[in-house]
């Protein structure tokens, strides 16, 4: 199953439509062998999906990039870490996951509620998970990562 293309399309469409921001892919997706302990950026959003396949989408970026992104989403400058930043980031992730799920053919996903975390994270990805990390970029703002973690069937 190809999850990479739907994920990239969902990210680009969501940031374009909801935030007015052009995001682009920065290179090839990396399939990371699991189990694996990964280091993510200061802002991390995770949303679970269940259905015929189960997994998560994660988006990780530097805090300053996240503030600009959510600021563009709500059309207000965000200068500090607050509830609006966290809620806005989660909502963006929710929209991305919805768009992703609609693009994956043959699987009907149910979405969980998103979780957003701030700080330096180390996340353990267990064995049996297909872990795809896609480097992406907001030109002029900075890099971010879109990650897909799906149970291998």
């Amino acid at each position: 199953m190809n999850y990479e293309t739907p994920c990239v399309e969902a990210v680009i469409e969501t940031f374009g439509a909801m935030c007015g921001i052009a995001a682009e892919r920065q290179g090839s997706a990396e399939i990371i062998p699991t189990p694996k302990m990964i280091q993510t950026d200061e802002m991390l959003g995770i949303i679970g999906m269940t259905g015929a396949s189960k997994g998560d989408i994660m988006i990780s970026m530097k805090m300053e990039v996240a503030k600009k992104l959510v600021g563009a989403f709500i059309m207000e400058e965000i200068s500090e870490i607050n509830d609006e930043l966290m809620d806005g980031f989660g909502e963006i992730l929710n929209i991305i996951a919805g768009a992703f799920a609609a693009k994956v053919e043959g699987i009907k996903f149910q979405l969980a509620l998103p979780t957003v975390m701030v700080g330096q994270h180390q996340t353990h990805v267990r064995e049996g998970i297909k872990f795809v990390s896609i480097p992406m970029l907001f030109p002029g703002w900075g890099e971010f990562k879109a990650m897909i973690l799906m149970e291998e069937t």
Binding site: V70, I74, M75, E84, D87, G88, G90, E91, N94, L113
Partner: peptide, 8 residues
């Protein structure tokens, strides 16, 4: 449930 979406 998203205060941000309600604000938008």
């Amino acid at each position: 449930d998203s205060t941000t979406m309600r604000k938008i």
